[in-house]
Simulated scan of single mutants.
Amino acid sequence: MSDFFPMIELELRPNRHVIPADTELWRVHHSKYGAGQFNPKLADIHFDGGRFEGTLLDPYHSLYLANTSITALAESVLRSRTFEPPAGMRRIPYRTVWQRSLSVLRTRCELNLVSLIEGKDLAAVCQDSTLLEDESNYAKARRWASEIRAQAPDAMGLIWESRRNRSQLALVLFHDRFEQCDGGPLEVLQGGGIPDLGSQEGMKKANDILEPLRAMISEPVWQ
């Protein structure tokens, strides 16, 4: 567990969202990493890194998931993608899925998460939707994730409404909160995902999943 300690005078009162054991969750990840492997990379305190990744001040490893396959894909590939005329489709560059996989996993233990799903949940941690929607200040989001961790030492991660597939859920897990979960929090399920999103078969399957969101992966252009 991190030695990070509260740095603000505000008292947070986090609401909880519990995901039962044996729940299926989905993840897009680099193919060279295991589907259930936490990302060991730490974000820069001020600049580069994901919204809720650990930093040198609070060096936890992170693992992002979603409750459905379409949400996992949307969270991974639809950032800053606009609807293009005339067909109104969102085209996803091939490089976005190259050497990446979509995997399905099952929880081995109950996940006790801090909820950021509703306005009341964000208010409970003295925040609003900016925490989830501001693309220009991930450093603040990382700092606040550490504050939540410090004031909710039993929380295993955070969960919120997906920005790219509204009403569905995205979540992040903290590696240092699973000491009591034998074998780690997630079991990889074989045969349910897409091992190579960059292959012809993988792109077809992914495009079928993304079709309701009017999005598709572009064919690669080889030089």
Rank of each mutant, 00 (worst) to 15 (best):
H29T: 02
H29I: 03
H30D: 15
H30C: 11
H30T: 15
S31T: 15
K32I: 14
K32W: 08
G34S: 13
G34P: 11
G36S: 15
Q37N: 04
F38Q: 06
N39I: 01
P40E: 07
P40C: 05
A43K: 08
D44T: 11
D44N: 15
I45F: 06
H46W: 10
H46Y: 13
F47D: 15
G50K: 00
R51D: 05
E53L: 00
E53Y: 09
E53F: 06
G54K: 00
G54C: 07
T55K: 02
T55M: 03
L57M: 14
L57D: 13
L57K: 09
D58W: 01
P59K: 04
H61G: 13
S62I: 08
S62P: 04
Y64M: 08
L65K: 03
T68C: 00
I70D: 01
I70Y: 01
T71A: 07
A72F: 03
A72S: 11
L73S: 05
L73H: 04
L73M: 14
A74P: 07
E75R: 01
E75W: 01
S76I: 08
S76T: 15
V77E: 03
R79P: 00
R81P: 02
T82C: 05
E84L: 11
E84T: 15
P86D: 10
G88M: 03
R91H: 15
I92H: 09
I92Y: 09
P93T: 14
P93A: 13
R95P: 02
T96Y: 03
T96V: 08
V97Q: 00
W98V: 06
Q99A: 13
S101E: 05
S101M: 08
L102H: 06
L102V: 12
L102T: 08
V104I: 07
L105N: 04
L105D: 01
L105I: 11
R106Y: 03
T107P: 09
T107D: 09
T107R: 07
T107W: 00
T107S: 15
